[in-house]
Amino acid sequence: MNRLSLNGTMAKSRIAAARVGIGGPVGSGKTALVERLIPALLERGVDIAVITNDLVTAEDAERIRRSGLIDPARVSAVEAGACPHTVIREDPTLNIEAADELERRFPGVELILLESGGDNLASTFSRDLTDFWMFVIDVAGGDDIPRKRGPGVIRADLLVINKVDLAPHVGVNIERMRQEALAVRGNRPVLLTNCRRGEGIDAIVDLLEREVLFRT
């Protein structure tokens, strides 16, 4: 990318990788979403790396490293050792350093996915850490989650409602849930997914390509 200098000439400047956060409650499907996003992004030619956050283990990182979806060296683990939001919002230093280190080792990386540990509806990402972040909830957690207006639901750049296939089994009217989510978010993006079957993933990648990677 070129940067205009004061006298109007152009100078080369390398652009840092986009950093995309994925947060949400325990069990909502954050890791499953990462496992779907990896092949979808690779298929579109996006050079990626992944950071996972766990409480006191590297379990999610190991799961993704073993998946065969991505070079294991491109997956880093951060152990929060405390409430997950502390390392993505209050003091994201560990994650910033992990992302910087991935960029040093893989200079061509275009996008880094940062998966938070499972947290509550108040979980949000610092803008110092991520350029864009999504919050993942699932229908089995209750269709009242959007109405509760948690900061995660309200402030995320994208709200993902996962496990839509379970809606009929847990008495959820998915369209009403989506409409309520759009209402509390002022019509900012809400997308539906079934990560187990890979449904809805392309729409998320389309959004990332437009809003973060600037490809469209």
């Binding site: 990318m1 400047s13 652009i15 840092a16 986009a18 950093r19 910087d100 610092s126 803008r127 110092d128 350029d131 864009f132 402030r155 437009r210 809003e211 973060v212 600037f214």
Partner: peptide
Amino acid sequence: PADVGRKRFRLTTDRGTDCAVSLDR
């Protein structure tokens, strides 16, 4: 105001120009 801290954003100017902006960290 909510977007001020971003290092990447896509917004439209008052003249309708679509801008895809990135900043160094």
